[in-house]
């Protein structure tokens, strides 16, 4: 079974890139279809792939979508930062 069918967000992001860049990049395996490409990347972003979110912010998202992806990305970074902060100790309430 392919990785996309196994619900891998990263696979969806790569699939999106292949569709957007088309034959030239994907060595004649995927025809250029920007709409399908963006659909894949949007799905990947929805499933929490940070690279996909970043891609949507930099390319092709409307202003409202950009806002949403930025918020989502910030939340992901905060979680990462919390993981980093686990190494430090401090008192709670």
């Amino acid at each position: 079974m392919s990785a996309v069918k196994e619900k891998s967000a990263k696979a969806k992001f790569y699939m999106g890139i292949l569709h957007i860049r088309g034959w030239e990049f994907s060595h004649q395996t995927v025809k250029t279809d920007v709409n399908v490409g963006y659909e894949f990347i949007k799905m990947a972003a929805k499933e929490g792939d940070t690279e996909a979110m970043q891609y949507m912010i930099n390319n092709g998202a409307s202003r409202e979508e950009q806002k949403m992806y930025k918020k989502q990305l910030q939340a992901c970074f905060k979680t990462e930062e919390k993981k980093r902060a686990m190494h430090f100790l401090y008192d709670g309430c």
Partner: peptide
């Protein structure tokens, strides 16, 4: 690439 596509 063909194999890569199949795996993706």
């Amino acid at each position: 690439p063909a194999l890569g596509y199949k795996m993706l």
